[in-house]
């Protein structure tokens, strides 16, 4: 097996030299300070993993990663940034759909792990033929779970989805997990701020239990740190600020249902949503049982 290709993009050449030295033993490293050059590389050869800086003169990292996604959807995208401003973190979720959000100064082992995992996933994907898009009817019958103490969220979702989509409403994590254990849901829309439940911890475990269910997080909490965790450990699919905008929510739901249909059609792609082990999640054991059930259901479904 030839070395996977790792593309490094940063406006500071010394970062590139340093990273290249770190990775060149195991990767075919291409490094550039220029976003346009990076796009050329992605178009001209298979690139398994791209690690990009966020703040660069001509283009932001999120912008670059979004364009790379359009040109080479199988390339795994990692953002490596010196400062996590909230706008960048949000955009990296919603526009960049990145695999990991890592910060400078980086932990070499963690970075190497993330790149290695990303390279494995991309390697497997590049080896497979590209599958055609799934039939649209898959979207029509999907289930969406809304986890929010505020009933208006579910009403908004109901108004945006076709009547054929089933909407499950839950106001506690436990109730949500019980319903998720009963039936496969395509999308969970969850308000992060909950009176007593650890919604964030639950979303992280849920992604481990069933990577096919896509999470749309929404909250009036605007906390970059929390969101970075949700990317790395929860592979949250979209983040929407509250109050919810109709159009943004509609687009996020459509994209999530589309992606879920793709995953159902081509289950291998769920690998792309692999997560870091969460640091710690405190949930009662009863709740952990639900996760086991969800995981088993997901396995059986994958096997059948």
């Amino acid at each position: 097996m030839s070395k996977p290709c790792l593309l490094l993009v940063d406006d500071e050449e010394r970062i590139l030299r340093s990273l290249a030295m770190l990775f060149r033993a195991h990767y075919d490293v291409v490094a550039t300070t220029d976003g346009v050059e990076a796009l050329k590389v992605v178009r001209s050869r298979p690139v398994h993993v791209v690690v990009s800086d966020q703040r660069m003169p001509a283009i932001t990292g999120v912008d670059l990663l979004r364009q790379i996604r359009d040109h080479s959807p199988r390339t795994m995208r990692i953002l490596l940034t010196g400062y996590a401003d909230l706008a960048a973190v949000e955009a990296s979720v919603n526009d960049g759909e990145i695999f990991r959000f890592l910060e400078k100064p980086w932990d070499a082992l963690k970075l190497q792990d993330a790149v290695a995992q990303a390279a494995d996933i991309a390697h497997a994907e590049f080896a497979e033929p590209i599958r055609v898009a799934p039939p649209p009817e898959a979207i029509v019958a999907a289930r969406v779970l809304v986890l929010d103490e505020d009933p208006s969220t579910a009403m908004l979702v109901r108004g945006l989805l076709p009547p054929s989509c089933a909407i499950t409403i839950a106001t506690t994590v436990e109730a949500a997990l019980a319903r998720l254990g009963e039936a496969e849901h395509a999308v969970i829309l969850a308000e992060l701020k909950h009176g007593s439940d650890d919604v964030i911890g639950a979303l992280k475990l849920l992604k481990q239990a069933n990577p096919h269910t896509l999470a749309i997080a929404c909250s009036s909490l605007r906390d970059g740190r929390l969101l970075i965790d949700l990317i790395n450990q929860g592979q949250v699919f979209r983040f929407l600020p509250k109050p919810l905008g109709r159009e943004l929510l509609r687009r996020a739901l459509t994209a999530a249902l589309d992606r879920h249909a793709q995953l159902a059609h081509d289950p291998q792609r769920a690998r792309r949503h692999a997560v870091e082990a969460p640091r710690e999640v405190s949930l009662p054991s009863r709740v952990m049982d639900y996760f086991r059930r969800i995981r088993e259901n997901a396995r059986q479904k994958a096997a059948s």
Binding site: E12, R17, L22, G82, Y83, K104, P105, W106, A108
Partner: peptide, 19 residues
Amino acid sequence: GLAHEINTPLGYVQNNVEM
């Protein structure tokens, strides 16, 4: 701005020293 300005050199300094 400063966090970004400092974390960039800090990134490669730390990595280089480790290597």
